[in-house]
Amino acid sequence: MTGNVPIPGGGATTTAGRTAAGSRVATSRRWFYASVAVLALSALVIAFLALGEPWNLAPGMTASFTKSIVALLVTLVLVLPAFAVFRYERQSAGGRWHEPAWRPSLIGWAGLFVALAIAIGWHGLRLAFYIARVWTGEL
């Protein structure tokens, strides 16, 4: 019944199309793995920035303050965009008829949540204490 029905991306007349599709899939896979790597590394960097930091951020603790700001910036500039790429490639990769062959999504999600948890739970909390103290101190 299917006879000579050409399959887009397949068949003798579509060698060029199949090659192009394969190239898109390969590119997509590279973006996917790059985003997962950025997520994981960013989570490690944010965790590293939290090491040894005091709980009581005070004026003059410029290095600690900078670390917290850097951690939040890494979250905004690297983690969330990387997650966007990760999510996009996770959903769109694989061509027209097949699901993607790669599904290592756990490290991506884990990277996201670890980064967010540390960024908000430690750096954000310290910044919140700092702001609250300065506010209280000035009032």
Binding site: R87, A119, I120, G124, A132
Partner: peptide, 27 residues
Amino acid sequence: TPRANPALVAVIVVGLMLLMLALLWAI
């Protein structure tokens, strides 16, 4: 250091969480 107002800390942290969640939802 001066005592941090817990309500203010909570508001800031919640605001940060909401910001992150909003960004996550937007993504």
